[in-house]
Amino acid sequence: MSERLAPTTTPDTKFFWDALKDGKLLIQRCKGCQTLRHPPRPMCPRCNALTWDTIEASGKGEVYSFVLPRHPRWPWFDETYVVALVQLEEGVRIVSNLNDVDAADVTIGMPVEAYVEHFDNVSLPQFRPRRNA
């Protein structure tokens, strides 16, 4: 087991982090106009409704952008790790890690799928190349 830097949960983001503890990746949905949004925030920018619910993401997405941070080195990561901006099939994007792949094989547009990893101090969405893509 290992740790990651943990988020400071706010009233606006608590649902997102809590659901990950239960293994679910949620996307916020406006109750006024049904628009999905991520990262979580209190007001819908389209209709200004303050009421919202959530849907569970399918976890399917594509790499929209990615980088390999090399410096500085951090205690929480291996020498090579991939940070990806993933476009989920529901239409929102999320930053996460892309694992189980050689960094040299990562491409923009690559199909990926989400899973939840339970670190010692926090549960986080993670991605890997999509099987049966």
């Binding site: 830097l5 988020p7 952008s65 941070p69 951090w74 929480w76 890690n97």
Partner: peptide, 26 residues
């Protein structure tokens, strides 16, 4: 550190922790 400032909540846990890395993704 063990906890992130709120503006890094969606980035820091994944190792996107520096201005260089934020800019590089874009």
């Amino acid at each position: 550190a063990s906890m992130l400032p709120p503006f890094l909540d969606m980035y820091g846990p994944y190792g996107l922790l520096t201005p260089a890395s934020w800019v590089a993704m874009q």
